[in-house]
Amino acid sequence: MARRRQLYEGKAKILFEGPEPGTLVQYFKDDASAGNGVKKGVITGKGVLNNRISEYLMLKLHDIGIPTHFVRRLNMREQLIREVEIIPLEVVIRNVAAGSISKRLGIPEGTRLPRSILEYYYKNDALNDPMVSEEHITAFDWAAPQDLDDINALALRTNDFLSGIFQGIGIQLVDFKLEFGRLWEGEEMRIVLADEISPDNCRLWDAKTSEKLDKDRFRRDMGRVEEAYQEVARRLGILPEAGNGDLKGPEVMQ
């Protein structure tokens, strides 16, 4: 494996220096966490599956003109991405009541929402990623009003497109989290979709049975977590060509 300099390690991924300026290598781990890191574990093969699922969905989004940081998949656990300035927001798009919105507002889980709802959370682990408003975002200069307009438009378009993809394979896209970044090309800047799209940050339910096919199985100790991720990949037609076997990660340069 190539020797690369590690730049950052998060809960589910590691970022390494890329092969050329303006690029990074994103490595997908099997580590899993919930409750902002309170609960930790390992989902065998998760990194392999998330790499493939995210690659597939990012390419589909690119095909309809949604800009992303994704360049190409390098191997079973790594992908080449463009280096972007991450905007410190998690944008959550909700189509069906589940998780925190059900707890906060007393809406029974599984209730179809009147329309898709966008929520914003400030990315700060020490503060448990608090929910914020557009006023907070623009007042504290996390994003300019025009940036926020672009983010909202991209998020809603992504939701419409992904909902259709999942509906076509018998899966309901309940809600999901997106992150965005600023991609600088000379003096020009544009907002692009970043991070990943996978069962780690999407709630995916079987359209007929409402069986959970996402990380909620880990959060709620429901079991069969690996099988749920595999089922999503199977329905998308992208089970890894070498199975879910673990691959050695890149050797880290200190």
Results as ranks from 00 to 15, higher is better:
Arg94Gly: 00
Ala242Ser: 15
Leu239His: 08
Ile107Gln: 00
Val91Glu: 04
Ile64Leu: 11
Gly186Ile: 06
Ala207Ser: 14
Asp150Ile: 14
Glu119Ile: 00
Ile137Ala: 09
Val232Phe: 03
Asp246Gly: 03
Arg224His: 13
Arg224Met: 11
Leu89Glu: 05
Asn244Ala: 05
Tyr8Ser: 11
Ile66Lys: 09
Pro240Val: 08
Val96Asn: 01
Gln79Trp: 01
Lys60Tyr: 05
Gly106Leu: 08
Asp30Glu: 07
Glu9Pro: 00
Lys46Gln: 03
Phe180Cys: 02
Leu118Lys: 08
Val232Gly: 08
Leu61Pro: 04
Val252Gln: 06
Asn50Lys: 08
Gly164Phe: 05
Asn50Thr: 09
Pro250Tyr: 14
Gly45Glu: 09
Leu89Ala: 05
Asp147Lys: 14
Ala34Met: 04
Arg3Asp: 09
Thr68Asn: 07
Asp200Thr: 10
Lys11Asn: 07
Ile238Trp: 02
Leu148Val: 08
Arg234Gln: 14
Gln146Arg: 11
Gln167Phe: 05
Asp149Cys: 10
Asn95Lys: 11
Leu105Phe: 15
Gly35Leu: 13
Leu156Asn: 06
Gly99Asp: 11
Val232Ile: 14
Val132Ala: 04
His136Gln: 02
Leu178Thr: 12
Thr23Lys: 15
Asn50Phe: 03
Arg77Pro: 06
Thr68Cys: 07
Ser100His: 07
Lys39Cys: 08
Thr44Asn: 14
Arg3Thr: 12
Ser100Cys: 00
Glu187Ser: 12
Glu119Phe: 04
Arg220Gly: 01
Leu15Tyr: 13
Ile171Thr: 08
Glu55Gly: 04
Lys40Asp: 00
Arg182Gln: 01
Ile66Met: 07
Ile53Leu: 03
Pro250Ile: 15
Asp63Ser: 14
Ile87Trp: 10
Gly186Trp: 12
Ile81His: 02
Leu154Lys: 12
Arg72Thr: 12
Leu80Ala: 12
Gln167Lys: 14
Val84Thr: 14
Leu80Arg: 13
Leu89Phe: 11
Glu78Val: 02
Met222Thr: 03
Glu241Tyr: 03
Glu188Trp: 09
Leu74Arg: 04
Ala155Lys: 06
Asn128Ile: 01
Leu7Phe: 11
Ala143Met: 00
Asn51Tyr: 02
Leu57Cys: 08
Thr68Met: 03
Arg73Pro: 01
Phe218Cys: 11
Lys60Arg: 11
Asn244Leu: 15
Phe166Leu: 07
Gln254Glu: 13
Arg157Pro: 04
Ala97Trp: 01
Phe218Gly: 11
Asp63Cys: 09
Glu55Trp: 10
Gly237Cys: 11
Leu162Asp: 12
Lys60Trp: 03
Leu113Phe: 00
Trp205Glu: 06
Arg73Met: 11
Thr138Met: 11
Ile87Gly: 10
Gln79Cys: 12
Ala12Trp: 05
Arg82Ile: 10
Ser116Ile: 00
Arg77Gln: 13
Phe166Cys: 03
Asn128Trp: 02
Thr138Ala: 06
Gln230Ala: 15
Lys208Asn: 10
Ile53Phe: 03
Asp206Lys: 06
Arg4Thr: 04
Val192Gly: 01
Val96His: 00
Ile87Arg: 12
Val192Cys: 05
